[in-house]
C-alpha cells in the first residue's frame, strides 16, 4: 500500500494550484524514494517535473511502485476542501482504483476524507539530460512573477539575456516595447531579496510569456525562482520546496527559422 502524511498540507494545495492550468491529467509516481510527477502540457511545449522526497513527509510508506493517474481539476477540487493549516494524508491500496485524501485540523477536532477515482493515463516519460547550464539566475520568486506579468501586457514573447552582472528581460508588442533589468544583488541582510547570477557563458534566448506566467503560479512555494539557461535549449524554471523537494518547469525556446 501507499500512505504518505504531509504535516504542511498547504504545500500540496500550492503544488496542485501551480500546475492544474498547465496539465490536464497526469500520473503521480510513488516509490520508496518519494512522490513524483512528470507531464507535458497539451501542446508539448513545456514539461512539469515535481519531486517530493520520502523524507520530506512526516510518514511515508510505499510497499511497491505505483503510478496513480489523476485529473488535476478533480484533485484541485478536493484539495480546496482542506484548510491551509491541515495535515494531509494520502492513502491507496495496491491495485486500488481510488486514492483517499485525509485532512486533519491542527487540534485534530476535524477529520475529513475524500476519495478520488484514479484514471488510466497513457503518458510518455521523457529523459531529461543532466546538462551543465550556461547561466543560472536565482531571483526572488515574486520578482520573477511580476516581470513576466508586466511584460505580458506589452508582448507575447520575452528575450532573456544573461551577462555576468545582470539579467535582462525584453519584449516587443504593437504598442511599444519594454525592458526590465535585474542586477546581481547578494544582500546578506535580506537573503529573501537576493538576486544571484552564475555564468559560464553569456546567453540570450526567447520564450513564450504565456508559459512563464503559468509557471509563476508556483510562486507561493518558494522565496526564489531559479532560471537555468543554455544556448538553444529549454529553459528550466525551478522552485525549491524547503525540506521537501522541488517543482521544475521546462519550456522549449522560440527558434528563428
Amino acid at each position: 500500500m501507499f500512505e504518505a502524511r504531509l504535516a504542511q498540507g498547504a504545500l500540496l494545495k500550492k503544488v496542485v494550484e501551480a500546475i492544474k492550468d498547465l496539465i490536464e491529467d497526469a500520473n503521480f509516481d510513488c516509490n520508496s524514494s518519494g512522490f513524483s510527477l512528470q507531464a507535458m502540457d497539451s501542446s508539448h511545449v513545456s514539461l512539469v517535473a515535481l519531486s517530493l522526497r520520502a523524507d520530506g513527509f512526516e510518514h511515508y510508506r510505499c510497499d511497491r511502485n505505483v503510478s496513480m493517474g489523476m485529473k488535476l481539476a478533480s484533485l484541485s477540487k478536493i484539495l480546496k476542501c482542506a484548510n491551509g493549516d491541515d495535515a494531509i494524508t494520502m492513502k491507496s491500496e495496491d491495485n486500488g482504483d481510488t486514492i483517499t485524501f485525509m485532512f486533519e485540523s491542527p487540534e485534530q477536532e476535524r477529520l475529513s476524507e475524500f476519495d478520488l477515482k484514479l484514471m488510466d493515463i497513457d503518458s510518455e516519460h521523457l529523459g531529461i539530460p543532466d546538462n551543465e547550464y550556461d547561466a543560472t539566475v536565482k531571483l526572488p520568486a515574486a520578482e520573477f512573477q511580476r516581470i513576466v506579468k508586466d511584460l505580458s501586457t506589452i508582448g507575447d514573447t520575452v528575450e532573456i539575456s544573461v551577462t555576468k552582472d545582470a539579467v535582462k528581460f525584453g519584449t516587443t508588442g504593437d504598442i511599444g516595447n519594454a525592458n526590465i533589468m535585474c542586477r546581481q544583488n547578494k544582500a546578506a541582510d535580506k537573503p529573501d531579496e537576493s538576486t544571484e547570477i552564475d555564468i559560464n557563458e553569456a546567453v540570450s534566448l526567447t520564450f513564450a510569456l504565456r508559459y512563464l506566467n503559468s509557471f509563476a503560479k508556483a510562486t507561493p512555494l518558494s522565496t526564489h525562482a531559479v532560471l537555468k539557461l543554455s544556448k538553444e535549449l529549454p529553459i528550466l524554471v525551478e522552485y525549491h520546496i524547503p525540506e521537501v523537494g522541488r517543482l521544475a518547469f521546462y519550456l522549449a525556446p522560440k527558434i528563428e527559422d
Binding site: L47, L126, P129, A252, K254, I255
Partner: peptide
C-alpha cells in the same frame, strides 16, 4: 518570425 519548438525535440522518450 521565431517558431515555437516542441519540448520533445530536446528530451527524448526514456
Amino acid at each position: 518570425a521565431a517558431q515555437q519548438a516542441s519540448i520533445t525535440a530536446f528530451f527524448g522518450a526514456s
